[in-house]
Write a protein that binds this DNA or RNA. Sequence first.
DNA 1: CTGTCACCTG
DNA 2: CAGGTGACAG
Length: 649
Amino acid sequence: MNLSLPDQNMHNSSECCLEDDKPDVMLPCFRRNMYDEPLASYSSGSIISQLLRKTIHNKRALDESHFYLSSSTAADSCQEDQCSVSSRDSTVEAASPSGHVSTGASLEGEHPMTDHLQAKRARVENIIRVMAGSPNSRQHGDSERSDTDARDTREAREAYRENKRKQRLPQHQEHSVGGPANRRPGSSSSDNCNTKDEECHKLKEQLHSMQRLLRQLQEKFLQVYNQEDPEHNDRDETEVAVEHDTMGESTEPRYVKSQNLQETLKQELSRAVNDCVDKVFKKVSSTGLDLSPQQRMCSSPEMQLSMGADRKSQQVGSTQEQPHAEEAAVKPRSLEYYERSEAQSPQDQTEALSLVVRKPAVTPLSSVTPTVKRPYPVHQTPFQFNYSTPLHDSQILEHLLKYGPHSNFGGLPCMPPSMDRTSPDSVDLPWDTIAMRSKVTSSHLGHHPRPSALGAVTVDNLCLPHVKIECGELQSMAERNPYIFFCLNINVNIQEGLTPSHLKKAKLMFFYTRYPSSNVLKTFFPDVKFNRCITSQLIKWFSNFREFYYIQMEKFARQAIVDGISDVKDMTVSRDSELFRALNMHYNKANDFHVPDRFLEVSEITLHEFYSAISAAKDSDPSWKKAIYKVICKLDSDVPDEFKTSSYL
DNA sequence: CTGTCACCTG
DNA sequence: CAGGTGACAG
């Protein structure tokens, strides 16, 4: 049948996701090959794009300082890769007249200056708006621009293409902050932008409120103790003091006690504030919002290190994430505009959008994200597939569902260590949380409050040349939560492995056919990619079915003989029969399938055959059952067409 | 030689 | 239900 077509669809689906949906959040090694190059070849032949290219170079001059700042601060090896590439590109492209990227440079001066100036002015205006306006207003402005100025949109695409290598992966830190934002799944690209901005503001507000609260507490503490040092106050101290007052203790020992508390509380308070501040700045960085110079200072590594003196658990994550945050913080704001304006276009989405954002229906993933499921024992699958690139959606989802959306793809045995290190979710989740998550062996689908975007971030950075995937597991996941697959638009119709669903279907088919041919199996399992192994497994299933069937027949036939039944006509098989109940329990355990009457007839005939053979003492012959098998195999009936649909059951 | 089957076993 | 094995047919 059309065995290859759905498979092709699967490939297309994955390519769509990897190349088009979220190219800008992929690592450069992946992105450039699969996204940039085709676009580059396209754009180099376009006069318009060449025109746009000129403006890009001008713009680059504007943002040059940002690029150098970004590239000069990388530390991580893969980070370093990214940044060195970015730095090299930005430098070489701007200086060298050769190379595909710089082809437009030679054409400079050929276009009317008005276009150039208009584009430039528009960008500058937008930059100013970005700097001055609120995130929401800026986004509206971008939307208007992208709607009204198609040329700018293309220019934005060009500019984006030129610059996207220089940007970090903002979503890397999306999940790192345990704020309410992480429990709110994105539903669309524009929503995503809004969400980011809102989250950023919320975090800022939280910080301010915490600061106000701190001041209030300090004042209250002062009132109680009438002390001179207001910085050593805390609510808990106040409560303790009040409590001690009521107990009528003397003032002096109380003060000593409170001083001990003070030291502890100071540390706690300091840590809490540090955490809050860190989270805010991380969030700000991850949202890609421009930071004020002061904020950039705060997100610098020196600042983080100095602030997190006593944050042992988070220190690891902070140091690891630091390059991300820093780069995001220094990302050129003009690039920000282009990303956003492009995100307005439903077809040319270049924003660092997550998989789930791109596909709104995916939202439920966040609420049904599996906690973690470690790989099944190998023996449960007939074989494993070694995929080469490109990566399947199913593989991505496989990992997502098996290890959780925040899992580290580097944990895969085939994952290069460098990829492991740059895995985004190691960013600033508490390190122990990550470690624990990767160790969890829960086999059920946990309901995780994490946002769906996290999984996408992880997926986006896949650079897996080879991934072992157990396709039976995939189908199993699809059964456990088919909505996930539906939402991800993943074609689960073609299976490269047999699943419990297929087993159930085969059992029901057994009611019609005890000896299905290979062709029948292929016809009635159109969603299975047949190969020798799969075919053998299916045949083995029916062999096992027959085994149980004949065992039951022989058992009940012998029982009938023991019971003294002398006439085969006294042996009937009805739906009330114990024999039928046993069979039905085996092949139709859920009892949600109406067993055809023909099966009752065949069962009765089989029972009679066994009874007759045993009665005639034919069972002394080692191969006495063969005659019965020969009779029964002719009693197969056609399987209803309803079984042909892959969605049956 | 290969595929299918029943049988046995875990 | 799957793995292993031997018998058997084409």
